[in-house]
Design a protein around this nucleic acid. Structure first.
Lengths: 143, 143
DNA sequence: CAGCATCCCCTAAGATACTG
DNA sequence: CAGTATCTTAGGGGATGCTG
């Protein structure tokens, strides 16, 4: 089954979409993107919906253009919800959808795998001083 | 713990590596790559080691340069093993390492997630005729 | 057989300035 | 506050031909 094309049906018209070789790639395409897993983690840990700037402030090094782009793609893929409150000035909230939440077990598996397999030769942390044990990292959960 | 730098120790020297924000990205970096999941699936399903050309022949549309590149990265990350048999002409085998095998549960989760969430609006297959049911796809396993 | 060597291309990503 | 609008860049990916 690895050769699959699919198209989205958008009301009347058909929108051609990229081709995926298998279901794995379809899922990967949803979480691939420089900041998507970070965004998911932040939203998850925050528990409540987050405003655009509030969320962006938590992500060091991201530019507004890319941030917006990632959000748009994630909304299109149905893993986050964008909700506009008509206050003045307007307030736009983002939060994980049910589908977004359903990614968390996978992300946890990935985190555990990464911890066990890729960080064995990790020797330096940002602060340049402390090197947390793997267990410390582990109990901190996602991200 | 999302701000992490790490470096590889290669004998005496230190090799600077890309920076990952969290363990998730570290794991993702191993399976990201246009053909890596496909290669893993092929090796897994084949059961036995596969030769370079034998494996490449099973991957429609890949070019030798990219194929070699993906293999090299996967070998560097320790998820496949490259074994050279000194026959004439030489024979090079590739197979999944223990670490590579340990990715399979994650890939299966991704496949299931993709099947459930991304293929609901799939309407067209390569042959342009049959549209297998999700159950058909599911029982075909990985890829 | 198992790959390099070259060349090209496209797109994700980033920097920065501006706005309804 | 929540984004656009422009411009630029890096590098992952691809095509094709050649070789120890």
């Amino acid at each position: 089954m690895d050769i699959i094309k699919y198209v989205h049906l958008d009301g009347q018209s058909m929108i051609s979409e990229p081709r995926y070789d298998c279901a794995i790639d379809a899922a990967m395409s949803v979480i691939e993107g420089r900041w998507k897993t970070v965004i998911i983690c932040k939203l998850y840990r925050n528990g409540a919906p987050m405003r655009y700037n509030q969320l962006m402030a938590q992500i060091e090094g991201i530019s507004p253009r890319i941030f917006t782009l990632q959000l748009k793609e994630m909304e299109r893929d149905g893993i986050i919800v964008r909700n506009v409150r008509s206050t003045k000035p307007k307030c736009v909230e983002y939060y994980l959808s049910e589908r977004g939440f359903s990614l968390l077990p996978i992300l946890k598996s990935l985190a555990e795998w990464g911890l066990k397999n890729m960080f064995s030769n990790m020797v330096e942390f940002d602060d340049g001083i402390t090197v947390p044990s793997k267990d410390d990292l582990k109990e901190s959960g996602l991200c």
